[in-house]
Design a protein around this nucleic acid. Structure first.
Length: 215
DNA sequence: CAGTTAGGGACATTACATCA
DNA sequence: CTGATGTAATGTCCCTAACT
């Protein structure tokens, strides 16, 4: 089979498709009767729908836009349950004077809208959480920098004190060096007492040692 | 049990209506 | 008139249950 043949066949098929689409849209009853004979099995690319002329719509062939009452009843039902069993579909359709197919389509589209709205909300919630986490991370990093600076100052002070009392005692910070409570105030570390483990007045250095060794 | 069929849902897309 | 937007409708794919 040549490409020309394939092309012609495709064009013919497209023409038939277009005619069938028109037929289904303008004369659904006839289409329903003919369709079993005319359906041809083929590899189907997505078909384009034929445009419907405005005058065709105004001739009453197709009802677009549902009325406010119809929409409100549909919404009410959707609120009760997002899925639609066929019994409920038929009941709703007759209540609304619509085709059951229209009710089914409305529910399908409504579910799609609901889902995309839900996704949007979820996205913005996650984004907010992410943003505030990033902010908190920055704050904590700044805090760490500040504390490191203070620590370095404290180390310098320790060394100064050690040099001053020079030789008179063995200066190992972990053994005999003791810091009195004013230490915190002295280096602007007020409020950080909780950071350091301070079991009692006689054993001030434990928390500091921990801090010292780990940072 | 495997194959077939019908019904229905999700999803992508199209086409019409409406509005700024 | 035009482009953007909302939505009804269509096409396709997939799944499931019932039937053969």
């Amino acid at each position: 089979m040549t490409t020309t043949h394939i092309k012609t066949q495709t064009q013919n098929q497209t023409q038939v498709d277009d005619q069938m689409i028109l037929l289904s849209q303008y004369y659904p009853e006839i289409y329903d009767q003919l369709i079993p004979e005319l359906i041809v099995e083929a590899v189907k690319p997505r078909r384009r729908r034929k445009k419907i002329k405005a005058d065709a719509c105004s001739s009453g062939f197709r009802k677009r836009k549902l009325s406010d009452e119809q929409v409100s009843l549909l919404e009410q039902n959707f609120g009760d349950e997002h899925k639609l069993e066929s019994e409920r579909k038929d009941r709703l359709a007759s209540e609304l004077g619509l085709d059951p197919r229209q009710v089914a389509v409305w529910f399908q589209n409504r579910r799609a809208r609901w889902k995309s709205k839900k996704l949007e909300e979820e996205y913005s919630k996650l984004k907010n959480e992410h943003d505030s986490t990033v902010l908190e991370k920055c704050r904590l990093e700044t805090e760490i920098l500040k504390l490191k600076e203070q620590l370095s100052e404290a180390e310098k002070e320790i060394n100064r004190l050690a040099e001053r009392s020079d030789g008179t005692s063995s200066m190992s910070p972990s053994s005999s060096f003791s810091i009195e409570p004013p230490f915190f105030d002295q280096f602007g570390m007020e409020g950080l007492e909780g950071v350091f483990y301070v079991p009692d007045q006689n054993n001030y250095t434990h928390g500091f040692e921990y801090w010292f060794n780990n940072f």
